[in-house]
Structures are given as structure tokens and as C-alpha cells.
Design a protein around this nucleic acid. Structure first.
Lengths: 104, 104
DNA sequence: GGAAGTGTACGACGCCCGTCGAACACTCGA
DNA sequence: TCGAGTGTTCGACGGGCGTCGTACACTTCC
């Protein structure tokens, strides 16, 4: 009847510009954000992404994305499913997410 | 009759997103860009910025900004004067510079 | 109760980045 | 010609970030 501690989130409103730029200045995190944007909300578990890092590093990257207000997480059984905070983040940093999702 | 080697520039068109985000993900460089944006073009020499680093580090930061297509430099006597590549950079990364200049 | 699957926490390691001092190159004015 | 001013380069240093393996916590299914 115990349950996992809910992950700590930061709303984009309380995120500094530097934090946001640093969070998006990493290739692995950019890929996570892009894959997440291409999926339905609350459908992707952390382990379902095609990134070249092991799960410890992956967990770290999700922690950074949460702290930057980019990703919201919720527990669903043994998995932790994700959602890109598209509208909130875009309201705080207009155009930034579009830039990342537009690709090169 | 010798003259200094012209600084190496990179046009924003040839700059990757990661490079741009990394260049703007540093507080010193952000301040440089902001002060530069608040000044007339070709009026600010490298040493005229109010940043808490010595000239060696300052020179490095300007090198990064040039490589990211953010700053253009020209020699003017003993000084090296700067210009923010506002329109070119904005064309390559729409909204990104606005985000930085809007502040927090 | 056990086993498998999922994600986090911790300590360690390596590397890159920002910083500095010192030495050097160049320009201009005295 | 010499000195002052400006900026770059070099080597070195320290700290932080990304990564990993391991151990642990929690959930679900058998």
C-alpha cells in the first residue's frame, strides 16, 4: 500500500532562460523532446526512447527536463509516462520549442 | 605595412542549433549579446563591455559568439569593434534572439 | 512469496569548458 | 622610436556535466 514519491516538477514560469537553454543544449535531451513531441501525450514511458545512453543517464536527463519545465511525468504502474509541456513552455519562452521541433 | 589577420567568422546559415543554444547558454555571453543589442552597430570594442572576466576569457567568448554566427567583428585601429548579426541570425533561428533580448 | 520489469540514488570516472596569468602581435600617438 | 593601449594565443588549473555500474525501491504478474 506504499507508493512511490511523485517526481519533482518545475513550472516553466519559474524557469530561468539559462536553465532552459542549457536543458535544450544537449543532443540526447533534444532527441527526447522531439520524440516526445511526435507522440501522443502520456503514452511514452522513459525507457521507450531510442537514445544511446543507459538508464542511469536517461533518468538524469529526464530530471533535467523536468527542472526546466519541459516535461511532466506521472506514474502508471511500474512505468513512468511522460508529456511534453508544450503550451506552458511556449508561453514562457515563445518560439523556443518551435525552433527545436523544426529541426535543422 | 603588416596588418592583423581578419577574425574567422561563421555565417548563421552554417550554424547548428546545438551550437547556437550552447553559445547562448552562458551568462557572460548573454550579457555581451544584450549590451551589443542596446548599442549602435560598430561602436563597441571588445574591452568596452561590463563583464566580470579578464581579457583572455573575454576573447574566448567573442570567439564562441563569432563561431555561432552571433557577432561580426572588424578591426578599427588598435581596437576590434563589434556588430550583432541581428537579421541574419534571426532568419536562421527565428525568435531565439528575441527571447534572449527580451530578458527574463 | 518470488521473479521480472521499470526507474531512481549513489559513487566514481573522464572530459570538456570557463577562467587565469603570461607572453606575444599589432596600432597609434607622443 | 618608444611607450601605452588593445586583443589573441598558449599552457595550466579547477569545476561541472555526462556517463556508467551497482544497488535499491516499487509495481505487476505468475
Amino acid at each position: 500500500m506504499t507508493h512511490r514519491a511523485a517526481p519533482e516538477h518545475t513550472h516553466p514560469d519559474k524557469v530561468s532562460l539559462i536553465t532552459a537553454l542549457d536543458a535544450l543544449g544537449d543532443p540526447v535531451r533534444i532527441q527526447l523532446v522531439r520524440e516526445l513531441a511526435a507522440s501522443q501525450e502520456w503514452t511514452r514511458s522513459c525507457g521507450s526512447f531510442d537514445v544511446p545512453v543507459r538508464k542511469a543517464a536517461l533518468s538524469h536527463h529526464f530530471s533535467v527536463l523536468r527542472a526546466a519545465g519541459l516535461v511532466e511525468q506521472r506514474d502508471d504502474g511500474p512505468k513512468r509516462i511522460n508529456r511534453l509541456r508544450r503550451t506552458e513552455f511556449d508561453e514562457r519562452f515563445p518560439g523556443l520549442l518551435d525552433l527545436v521541433l523544426r529541426g535543422d
